[in-house]
Design a protein around this nucleic acid. Sequence first.
DNA 1: CGGCGTATTGACGCACCTCAAGGTAAGTGG
DNA 2: CCACTTACCTTGAGGTGCGTCAATACGCCG
Lengths: 257, 257
Amino acid sequence: MPPKQNASHTYMEIVRGLPLLEGMTETEKSALLGKGRIFSYPRKTALFLQGDAVDSFYIICAGTVQLVRSTPDGHDVTTGLFTEGDALSEKEIFTAADRHSLSAMAVDGVVVLKLPAEALKQSIASSEALARNVLASLARAATLAEREVEQRVTMTAAQMISCYLQHMCVAHDFKPEGFTLPYKKSLIASRLGMELETFSRALPKLREHGISVSGPRVTFEDFAAIDAHACARCSVNEFCTTYKSLRGSADGATAAL
Amino acid sequence: MPPKQNASHTYMEIVRGLPLLEGMTETEKSALLGKGRIFSYPRKTALFLQGDAVDSFYIICAGTVQLVRSTPDGHDVTTGLFTEGDALSEKEIFTAADRHSLSAMAVDGVVVLKLPAEALKQSIASSEALARNVLASLARAATLAEREVEQRVTMTAAQMISCYLQHMCVAHDFKPEGFTLPYKKSLIASRLGMELETFSRALPKLREHGISVSGPRVTFEDFAAIDAHACARCSVNEFCTTYKSLRGSADGATAAL
DNA sequence: CGGCGTATTGACGCACCTCAAGGTAAGTGG
DNA sequence: CCACTTACCTTGAGGTGCGTCAATACGCCG
């Protein structure tokens, strides 16, 4: 199923503003982005599949993409969820892997800017700013992945969920007083490397640790309890620092509940 | 305990030949390496500790370094083992993290070339070849870390050990017909994120899957069984491809046993 | 010899997986 | 409008792999 092409210009504007391109001159940006085109993928379709040639670089303009590996015994592992502003397959391009070892599936309707891998490589050679940004982005990805390994070893399911919800709250700029899960629970469970049943069973336990979840609705109720349960072990938690200032008022709000 | 300084020149020559510096001119190499100095660290001492400032880049000339995170509840997780030719703390330098979140411990006597982080950044800006190499190295690190997450989700302890031994065999250029473990078993277990007891108990099971381990001695006995047990699930396995040619003769050897 | 670091082995508990049976909620067709 | 389906989630019962604690064995060196 060939992806539909989309002529919209607004997406290009979104892309131009991304941190990944920060510091590049407008001419440099144009030189790079001019070589790309906007594509859209409907729900459940693949941007690329395990085994496909690595020839493109993707920047997500809208929607959510899931990276999945299908193991020979039929199990699927979601290795990452990416949304607006994220880039895809940088790693593969720079490791000089010629085939994808993961599939990228559109979780919902997805719009991407698709660039030839060569174009990215050329721009990196000519733009020092881009090189710096890509380096930083890869380094960040590597660090995050390493932390995930750690977490899986040291934390229980409930703690991982707690961490993930906090992370999500910051990343999507949700209000800690209450927000709705942006993905299906099964998708989140898969992302966290656990079974849906385990995920489901862990949610009620979270209430004892300061987070209440009913249906798709999440509320952070007791910041101190959240901290004690998960933050202390989770080193990647922007939540703690991000909402440190909030915490005074949030405690007040909790008292008022 | 301040690290001893070592005046040896031969280490510099090792470093000059590393893939990481491949493609740089001799002048570029000298400009970069001239800013570094050789240090040696005795067994059990720290190159840097969790919380230290990120100010240096390390290239290991000899020995083995263990990256560990100490969790608040006293558990240690080894996130990586690095040896001659590997680089340390690239990730931290390029994520612009100002503090180390892991400690680096010398497993045995370790000799490193220590460079100021700034020197590396400058050289990257001026040498396109170096920029490419560092990009590739980070991308590779990120990919490997992601694979590890996957493995931890999908594989049993025995399978992870099998994969690790195969990987080790290739990385250290050991003979598959028999080699001696280069690290203590407790270190390997820690690296694989499992308890020593679990590791110990898994070893006898490996015999049924084509790998026999007695004491520190490892022998790959049945390539087909190894494949069936671990390779099919382990996507990072250079072993399979590396020894594909060997396999015919190895099968012969197995038959002869 | 005794002490020390390292590895093996056993018994037990817990966290998670697996299979299976409801239970909602939204969409579909008559 | 209501039965029916489908997708998604919850809940229960039972199994298993790994962690934990504890006892024991092995190799090394003083």
